[in-house]
Simulated scan of single mutants.
Amino acid sequence: MSDQTYTGEVEPGGGSDVRELEHLTITKLAVDPQMSNNCYLLTCRATGESVLVDAAESGDALLGLCDSTLEGVITTHQHWDHHRALAQVVEATGATTYAGEPDADAITDQTGVAVDARLHHGDRIPVGDQVLEVIALAGHTPGSVALLYDDPTGHPHLFTGDSLFPGGVGKTWSDEDFRTLVDEVSTKVFDRLPDETWFYPGHGNDSTIGAERPHLAEWRARGW
């Protein structure tokens, strides 16, 4: 089964990596050699309906993963490298667009695409018969969101955008933003989720909450 062979190690221009859970398929694709953004297609295995996390670039490649059952595109935050293919994908599929409330206007200004659903902490997004829970994580941007899939027959899966990576939280531009992001990640992610939670960032390789938990104090102390 693909869940046993999935590594999450993908490169722009290369193929996707697929993880088959009991109820959900996760397809990870890296795009753009310069920025190496990760895009994630989440598909309900019962209904075939899917959502895309970050239409970052390479619209043709993303549309090649998707089909007419693409119900939504979720933009994790407002930074330009995470939504360059948003207009193309939405025009081709008619998918509903989602983004955190504080980032929604900036995303529309940059892409020309209206945000249909403005997300708040605790909101739920359907993926066929399955559900993603929105975790708001301010700091990298005011409206950054992570998306939690709490697998009913396995461990949780968390799509973190640029708020959490292996080795630290995402980039911030002030001490205040850094403290905010570390606090949000600590209380909303590490204090809540078990060690076996697998998380999928906006760039690079995946990790688990358990692998990163011992380093939280180090991150806070170094200040970036």
Rank of each mutant, 00 (worst) to 15 (best):
G15I: 07
S16C: 10
D17P: 05
D17S: 12
D17Y: 08
D17W: 02
V18H: 04
V18F: 00
R19T: 14
R19H: 15
L21S: 05
L21V: 09
E22R: 15
H23P: 02
T25A: 14
I26K: 14
T27C: 12
T27E: 15
A30W: 14
A30K: 11
P33E: 12
P33F: 09
P33V: 03
Q34L: 07
N37L: 08
C39E: 07
Y40A: 11
L41C: 09
L41N: 07
L42W: 07
T43V: 11
C44I: 03
C44D: 15
R45Y: 05
R45M: 13
R45C: 04
R45I: 11
A46M: 11
A46R: 15
T47H: 06
G48H: 07
E49I: 00
V51P: 07
V51D: 14
V51L: 10
V51K: 07
V53L: 14
V53D: 01
V53M: 13
V53Y: 08
D54N: 13
D54T: 13
A55P: 04
A55M: 12
A56W: 03
E57A: 14
E57W: 13
E57V: 01
S58L: 01
S58Y: 15
G59M: 04
D60N: 05
L63K: 03
G64K: 08
G64T: 04
L65Q: 02
L65C: 06
L65H: 04
C66L: 02
D67I: 14
S68R: 11
T69A: 08
I74T: 09
I74A: 06
T75V: 12
T75G: 06
T76S: 14
T76E: 11
T76P: 11
T76Y: 09
H77V: 00
H77A: 00
W80H: 03
D81L: 14
H82R: 11
R84H: 05
L86R: 05
L86S: 04
A87V: 03
A87T: 12
Q88N: 02
Q88P: 02
Q88A: 08
Q88G: 03
V89N: 10
V90H: 14
E91S: 15
A92E: 00
A92K: 03
A92Y: 03
T93P: 09
T93I: 03
T93G: 07
G94W: 06
G94Y: 04
G94Q: 05
G94S: 08
A95C: 03
T96M: 02
T96N: 04
T97G: 01
T97K: 02
T97Y: 04
Y98R: 01
Y98I: 02
A99D: 15
A99L: 03
A99V: 08
A99Y: 06
G100C: 13
G100W: 01
G100Y: 01
E101G: 06
E101W: 10
D103H: 09
D103W: 02
A104K: 01
A106T: 12
A106P: 05
I107G: 03
T108W: 01
D109K: 10
D109F: 13
D109G: 06
Q110V: 00
T111A: 06
G112D: 09
G112N: 10
G112Y: 06
G112W: 04
G112F: 01
V113E: 00
V113S: 05
V113I: 14
A114W: 00
A114S: 05
V115N: 10
D116Q: 07
A117V: 15
A117T: 10
R118F: 09
L119C: 08
L119D: 12
H121N: 14
G122H: 13
G122Q: 15
R124C: 08
R124H: 12
I125H: 15
P126K: 12
